[in-house]
Design a protein around this nucleic acid. Structure first.
Lengths: 346, 346
DNA sequence: ATCACGACTGGGAGCGCTCCCACCCCGGGG
DNA sequence: CCCCGGGGTGGGAGCGCTCCCAGTCGTGAT
């Protein structure tokens, strides 16, 4: 523990490019070229520089690099804290994990930005305007959130998880909500169910609409009617699921299967079914969506549609990095497959 | 120069300190003083500068500031990805939320760093050595993790969640595992249970040891024996909980209550109890720890010890910010209270 | 031998801030 | 009336990098 170090404070004493250059007997420019992998350096020189770097334990100063090169080597993951659906288990941790994986190979840093209040939202806007990140990953935005518009104006690279509509202008990665819902309902049909109801998410959410579309498609394919009284919209919450289930039971007592557009809502529905003496799966089959921990621990364990969330995080990041590398926003739209996980609730 | 600006693409055109100064008719130093809230500025000047800042929409360039001031205004949240216990629900999202809250009032950024492989761990070490953050929040480290040692050597501000031992040298924030466990077991005693077993976590984890201590204390206070055959160690996993429960049932068939040191293990135990025809809570009372989503959705809902995780995240951050502000590492040790959430499993 | 032309290389000129020293100006004491 | 001391202020000197423009060499062609 050197006294000098302590006195000079944190960050002092780290070798600089200049020192590496001196040590290697070359110029600053050459060291920079080696560090950044430029091909226009002779092998001999490169070796010398690399040796000096190793001996000195040189680590480039990020701030200096950012200032000089006008880039930050950082991306932001923006999470609206109010949107509990995305912040809640398991979305958040899995997305982060996927993002982390994609970033592991790069020099990029991940900035985590939670936006709660409107004040924080404004601050974020200012933030991004200040170009403190090279790109933005946006998860769980509401249809009426002004953030995407703002980002589009700034023309900063952005990837959004879950397009807000059929013609989302931003690059996006989504799971195949339509196919997932269709598979879930087809599975119920295969189990011999005939009065298949659905509890939907808020229909101003694109993904929720897609799940409803999938439900309808599967019924149509099976030649079953998609009677309006078998469709009950809720809000992705447990309480909403309870309400919707009670509703369905009142309107359609003959119901023998329910496709809930989220596990949490399925859990609410399950409670009501139990209260009303309907057995699962004997009387009513139940399918959820998300394949969360809740599904695995429900009684009986819940059949559910798994979304490849981690992979979505990875894909979003790769798309974003590609945009940043290309230097211009592109607008690809990726849809990842879902998978039906069958458990004993059906 | 104008052309050059355009060529530089994104990030060009943002007003600089210099431009604000010109606009306000003052010098750079003065603007800097206003921005940083120095008191040595006359009111008239301050007003003029603030007006110019507003008109130009000036946002300080973080990289330049970091370079000049040798600080980054960023802290890192380091999460070992392998430690599933902390990365898993609900820890991770809640900690992050708490951290976010504490940071909302400040200008600090949050860097999220997942360390999986040893290679990534080395990279992180280099990272921190490069002083790219002002401080580190370390969650879910194992007893044998070299990271804390490293950070201590760098004498960089650090706060750790969950001390690794009774004499943790680093600043730490923890929940009161001892009191939580004691309360849980006391509650079982109050319910009239007499053969109270426990499924512990890995005993090289300090928190797991503390929970076991709490279990013992409660039994001692109730004048009940803490027979060794009522203690079965596991590893915080569901499978571990299953094994430990099977074990207990073999060794102590008279068991009428189980305190599991995590909800996940309680869930495993619950499955075994069901398989063996033991009813919960009639035959065996069951208590978990964490009060996670699993607890709420178990059948019957699980009585569990709630930890104030979000608050822990907040406290950790506040401790860290204080350390950074003080310019020197301090070593406070904070223990936050737990709360027993009683449900129908007891 | 001369010339042109790549392949490499050195280092000046910033990037936008903070730090800090010098300076200005004004009131009060000698 | 001069000097001193502070509050207030301007701006030079970097912080450690990247960019890019001049070189400096060899080399093959002429």
């Amino acid at each position: 523990m050197t006294a000098a170090r302590t006195v000079r404070g944190r960050g002092a004493g780290r070798p600089t490019l200049e020192e590496v250059a001196a040590r290697a007997g070359v110029g600053r420019g050459t060291v920079s070229r080696v560090i950044n992998g430029s091909p226009r350096v002779s092998d001999r020189t490169r070796a010398a520089v690399e040796a000096a770097v190793a001996e000195l334990g040189y680590v480039p100063n990020r701030a200096a690099r950012a200032l000089a090169a006008n880039r930050t080597d950082a991306i932001a993951l923006v999470v609206p804290e109010t949107e509990t659906r995305f912040f809640a288990e398991p979305y958040f941790s899995e997305v982060v994990r996927g993002v982390g994986q994609a970033l592991a190979e790069t020099e990029m840093q991940l900035l985590l930005t939670l936006v709660g209040s409107d004040r924080e939202r404004r601050r974020l806007a200012q933030y991004l305007t200040g170009h403190r990140v090279d790109g933005v990953l946006l998860v769980g935005v509401h249809a009426d959130d002004p953030l995407p518009e703002l980002l589009e104006q700034l023309d900063m690279p952005v990837v959004i998880s879950g397009p807000r509509s059929e013609d989302e202008p931003l690059a996006s990665v989504d799971s195949d909500n339509f196919a997932g819902a269709r598979a879930a309902v087809a599975h119920l049909v295969a189990r011999g169910r005939r009065s298949i109801a659905t509890i939907t998410g808020p229909l101003d959410v694109y993904g929720a609409r897609r799940r409803l579309d999938g439900y309808r498609a599967a019924l149509a394919e099976a030649g079953l009617p998609a009677a309006p009284h078998l469709i009950s919209p809720a809000d992705f919450t447990e309480e909403g699921g309870r309400g919707a289930m009670a509703d369905l039971l009142g309107r359609a007592p003959e119901v023998d299967a329910v496709f809930a557009a989220s596990d949490v809502m399925a859990s609410g529905a399950r409670q009501v079914l139990r209260e009303r003496g309907r057995r699962v799966p004997e009387d009513v089959s139940l399918v959820g969506f998300d394949d969360s921990a809740i599904a695995r621990h429900m009684e009986p364990p819940l059949t559910s549609v798994r979304q490849p969330i981690e992979e979505m995080g990875r894909a979003m990041t790769e798309l974003l990095l590609a945009q940043i590398a290309a230097g211009e926003p592109s607008r690809p739209r990726l849809v990842l497959p879902t998978e039906l996980v069958v458990r004993s609730s059906t």
